[in-house]
Computed example of a mutant assay.
Amino acid sequence: MDYTFDFSSVFRNFGPLWDGLVVTLALTLASNIVGLTLGFVLALLAMSRWAVVRLPFVLFIEFFRCTPAIVQIVWFFYCVPMLFDVFLGPMTMGIMALGLNLAAFNAEAYRASIQGVPNEQLDAAVALGLNPFQRIAYIVLPTAVRNSVPVLLTNGISTFQQSALVAIVAIQDLMYQGKMLATETYRPIETFTIVALIYFAVSFPVSQIVGYLERRREVMAS
Rank of each mutant, 00 (worst) to 15 (best):
L197M: 12
M180K: 05
L197P: 03
P188K: 12
L181C: 02
R216L: 10
T191W: 14
P188F: 14
I198N: 01
L181P: 00
V169Y: 03
I189M: 09
R187L: 10
F200S: 02
G178Q: 10
V202D: 10
I171T: 09
R216T: 05
A182N: 00
I189V: 09
R187I: 07
Q177G: 00
A196Q: 09
K179S: 01
Q172D: 12
G178K: 09
F204W: 15
T185S: 09
F200I: 11
E190K: 07
L181G: 00
Q172T: 13
R215F: 11
Q208P: 00
Q208A: 15
L213C: 08
K179H: 08
Y199M: 13
V195E: 05
R216D: 08
A170P: 01
R187D: 02
Q177N: 04
S203D: 02
V169G: 08
A182S: 05
V206G: 00
P205A: 15
V169A: 09
I168G: 06
R215L: 12
L213W: 09
A167E: 04
E214V: 03
I171A: 08
E184Y: 15
G211V: 12
Y176S: 02
F204Y: 15
V202Y: 13
T193F: 14
L181V: 01
M180C: 01
D173Q: 13
G211S: 11
I209S: 02
A201Q: 01
A170S: 15
M175A: 06
Y212Q: 13
A170T: 14
E214T: 10
T183C: 01
T183H: 05
I168F: 14
M175F: 11
I168T: 15
K179F: 06
M175V: 02
I198M: 10
F192L: 07
K179R: 14
I209E: 01
E214W: 04
Y186R: 14
A182W: 07
I171Q: 05
V195R: 08
S207C: 08
I189L: 11
R215S: 12
F204D: 08
A167Y: 06
T183G: 01
A201K: 02
Q177R: 00
T191K: 13
Q172Y: 08
T191V: 15
I189C: 03
V210G: 03
D173G: 10
R215A: 10
A201D: 00
K179Y: 12
V195I: 10
R217C: 11
Q172A: 14
S207D: 04
V195P: 01
Q177D: 00
S207G: 09
V169E: 06
G178V: 05
Q208S: 12
I209K: 02
P188M: 10
T191I: 12
I209H: 04
M180S: 04
Q208M: 15
G211Q: 13
L181N: 00
I189P: 00
R187Y: 13
I194P: 09
V202T: 11
Y212F: 14
V169D: 08
A201E: 05
E184L: 14
I171D: 03
L174W: 01
P188Y: 13
E184A: 12
Y176N: 09
